[in-house]
Amino acid sequence: MLELMTAESNFDVESTAPPTKEELLGRVAQGDQAAFGDLYDQVAPRVLGLVKRLLVDHAQSEEVTQEIFLEIWQTATRYEAGRGGASTWIMTMAHRRAVDRIRSSQAGRDRDTKIGIRDLAVAYDHVAETVEVRIEHERVEKAMSRLTQLQRQAVSLAYYGGYSHSEVADMLHIPLGTVKTRLRDGLIRLRDELGVTS
């Protein structure tokens, strides 16, 4: 992947195709602020979408999104293209930081109050903004539908709710071991349905 990027930067400099996120991230790693701006434009709505899904509060979600992008700026030099796409790297970081925020502060408690008994199952009734997003929705929705109800509930609480496995166990009144099993079996099922391979 790195060689591929190098080749592109050598030979496709004049290309009119917009740079990929991976190329932009490579430039960010070299201190290119304009590339950072372009990368931001491409991925910020998805980052904020995910963070807000977890944190609910908009202002707080923007704050965490800002931290995530500062971290992208600081650590772009560590991104290794051969190990996965830029979106994967960024969204993994985004989820971790949103969860960190929930765990680290009053934020979590505020959020719980705000969510109340909100249904944490994935909502698919929104109009997706782009075809790409809608396709991804449908793909994930379909894959989620293959899980058992109990697996789906546990995975949703953990990923979209940002709850720890012990919190999930408390909420569902089930043993921690059962939660672990549901999370792993559920994700493995999702992986297979989505055709994810490393």
Binding site: Q66, T92, H137, Y159
Partner: peptide
């Protein structure tokens, strides 16, 4: 693989447009 699978869940969330102020602030920072 499971981490990639989790990312797929993340990419399925509804995008939310950040405020213009956020980008301005970041570009400054």
């Amino acid at each position: 693989e499971l981490s990639d699978t989790a990312v797929a869940l993340g990419l399925a969330t509804i995008p939310v447009q950040p405020s213009a102020a956020l980008k301005a602030s970041l570009m400054d920072l």
